[in-house]
Design a protein around this nucleic acid. Sequence first.
DNA 1: GATGAATGAGGATTCATTCAT
DNA 2: AATGAATGAATCCTCATTCAT
Lengths: 221, 221, 221, 221
Amino acid sequence: MPASHAATNSVLPRRKGELTAERILDAAEDLFAERGYAGTTIRDVSAAVGIRNPSLYNHFPSKDALYAAVLERGISPVLAALSAVGAAGAAGTLQNPGELVETMMAQLAERPKLPRLIQHEMLAGGERLSPMLRAWITPIFEQADHVAESGPAALRWEPEQLRLLVLAMYNIMVGYFTIAPLYKELNGIDLLSPTMLEEQTRLFSEVVNALFGALASDGGD
Amino acid sequence: MPASHAATNSVLPRRKGELTAERILDAAEDLFAERGYAGTTIRDVSAAVGIRNPSLYNHFPSKDALYAAVLERGISPVLAALSAVGAAGAAGTLQNPGELVETMMAQLAERPKLPRLIQHEMLAGGERLSPMLRAWITPIFEQADHVAESGPAALRWEPEQLRLLVLAMYNIMVGYFTIAPLYKELNGIDLLSPTMLEEQTRLFSEVVNALFGALASDGGD
Amino acid sequence: MPASHAATNSVLPRRKGELTAERILDAAEDLFAERGYAGTTIRDVSAAVGIRNPSLYNHFPSKDALYAAVLERGISPVLAALSAVGAAGAAGTLQNPGELVETMMAQLAERPKLPRLIQHEMLAGGERLSPMLRAWITPIFEQADHVAESGPAALRWEPEQLRLLVLAMYNIMVGYFTIAPLYKELNGIDLLSPTMLEEQTRLFSEVVNALFGALASDGGD
Amino acid sequence: MPASHAATNSVLPRRKGELTAERILDAAEDLFAERGYAGTTIRDVSAAVGIRNPSLYNHFPSKDALYAAVLERGISPVLAALSAVGAAGAAGTLQNPGELVETMMAQLAERPKLPRLIQHEMLAGGERLSPMLRAWITPIFEQADHVAESGPAALRWEPEQLRLLVLAMYNIMVGYFTIAPLYKELNGIDLLSPTMLEEQTRLFSEVVNALFGALASDGGD
DNA sequence: GATGAATGAGGATTCATTCAT
DNA sequence: AATGAATGAATCCTCATTCAT
């Protein structure tokens, strides 16, 4: 269902098998994001795809494997994008911390169901948490350490506080997407509309820059 | 398990039945918070309490009712505390917005499982969302409107931006507790330790005051 | 609930215990008649009486015993009445076979739920059938034999056919009451109204007399 | 078990699934007829078929649906046969009312369990009564109206009495089959034996013709 | 690759009954 | 006599998974 994936279908009419697998992934992503792992049944997924229950096992060996595949497909590109920006930052070209925020917001905006998926998994707790999600959250903290040591934020915050500020920004962004449906229902405003997303991205970016004391305070630099 | 509830036991040795009901609520709170509604079975709860499966139905008529009771018992005191502060703010005595943050952090710190419970429910989405949680989230936004109109924050942010800043603070705080176990595992630091909680509460409070441009720092302004 | 039983309550305010036992019997009679043994739960009965589930066991040792008591209380008077008429017939004073019909109709009319109770039990089949019901059906056939040997019907029907005619009459009468609610719903006529009951009793009686060739042949008698 | 259904198996070796479904229907028909809806468990049915409990749900979505299917399969052919005779009667070719009796007896004789099924359902009462059974009983009354208006019975009975005579005949026939097991136990005679059935069918037919005054008007015939 | 059928394990809930109070 | 609590055994039904076709 996600536009990005559906789009690939129309472009690359791959072998029928892969097509079905991808349709399964799409449906599963929706349902896992909406109801979590325990709340989603193989039958629900099959029904959403329009196949019978056992056919799903021709494409994924188990519910667990399907879940892992959904996480993998969903999180990988986000991680990649973040890594790219992070690498740039590590190489000294990260102009401002807000850029990380903008990248992440852009990535999540493309897959608005993803944050719910991640939140569900995060709630599932420490041990059960997929290694992929550990890989997702760890580099974010490392970014914080990097910035803490070298950036202008070091002037304002303790290193440890910085890690927690990063955590806070993570929570802000993921929570923003997670809460969007409810927010729309309560306030009538669609947080996922392009306008709002753009605006919020700018706001979060500003906040990050303000808190991390990025270029703004550096003035003419 | 929650200290506040256990405390009442020693004071009022109520009827055996009420005791069991409360033990069921305790166990259910833990499990629902950990695994969500779908991931928690009545059997799990009964086993945690040390009773047989059908005995639970002497105290709660259904899994749904038990879940509702857990939410009710968990969220009510937090709502009450927030309302108290909110009322004070409405009456003009809310010295700084950070006070709301401090109150909420204190409340959540007393029931560290609660945020997970709330997050699970929030993820369950719009329609299924318990009315109680709507009651929980709505007044928070109303606080924002109040501050927006009268507080010094009005000088800095648009009214709509304020609502979203409040949302962000909500996400920060709930996310802080939610992610605590994982954070400890990854970084070795217990976010729920008294020291950390105190420190973070101060930090969040500062941030809020900074963003909302509270009176304190504005001093002579 | 049955008027006849409730009436005794107002007349003889016996010890409270007996009162409760009788109220239980009333409620159980209603429910067993309506839903059968398997379809009726002890909880249903207790609820109808207004007591809690275990209290019922202060009056009846088990569901089976309660069921037996209901059958006993319901069927005994009918059996007694039939026996009386039968005895009279055996003694040579049974003026016409229709009298048996009239007696039975009158008895059933007083306890309109009883036929359903009997039908339920009859359907439960041979072996499980309560001894009481065997006692109920057996003498009816014996009446048939008696009439067959001595009455004018002997002129018209074979002895074996007579037994089956008796069976038919039994089915007609019990079925009449059993089907009454549905008949009312379909045709708008209440078969249990005094008028209808009177009329039908006369009709059945006529039919019996016609078939058994009672008074008809006796002419001026 | 019913001969008619088993017969189709040998003729059309349908798909395995349909076979199983039919075996389930057979077993369920037996059990529902014997014990009623509430007294029959899915486990009983599965066991009788020789499959495991959940397998039954591959063929019928619920106990209710299975019950409905049993009723449908059992009653449809009887309704069809009755309709055929009824239509003939409506067209003026119904030579005598006894023909309806003969048809019904023949139909019930082929499925001797069916009457018990119907009785159970009838006892379940008005509202819960399957629409199919309403469809079953209604046309019988309409036959009565038809006969009442045009037939020679009109000379002897009031129209309303006719309806009740029809009801009586219904009760006689269904009751005959229902009580057969008990009758055999008590009197040693199998009412369902071909000889008895033939004899009784003739008897009932005669009675109907006698009561409805059929042959009477035919005079010397 | 798809599916009808089958199934062990389990899931929420009910039921008749017991027992201490 | 009444009842709150407890429970073994069932009850209907779902779930993830397998397998033959």
